[in-house]
């Protein structure tokens, strides 16, 4: 995975665009988990959802930079 993506000749870090992609993917996973009622059993659902998204995006970033 290249660290940079050319957007009309401007080289942007891939992470900026991947953030949007991760946001979409994270939202889909979030809906899925909600559909199965996972969050009903969670201790602070907001904290769990936030942490899950952070893990997802952090792993993507680590994959690119390592």
């Amino acid at each position: 995975m290249p660290r940079e993506i050319a957007l009309f000749g401007v080289y942007l870090p891939s992470l900026t665009l991947l953030f949007l992609a991760t946001l979409a993917a994270g939202w889909a996973l979030d809906r899925l988990a909600a559909w199965f009622g996972l969050y009903r059993h969670a201790w602070h659902p907001t904290l769990l959802r936030m942490s899950l998204f952070t893990c997802l995006y952090g792993l993507v970033a680590l994959y690119i930079y390592r």
């Binding site: 769990l48 942490s51 792993l59």
Partner: peptide
Amino acid sequence: VFTLLVFAAAAYIVRTL
């Protein structure tokens, strides 16, 4: 415990990054 584990994982990943 599960929520805290996920939170800890997130914190660890952010720190590594």
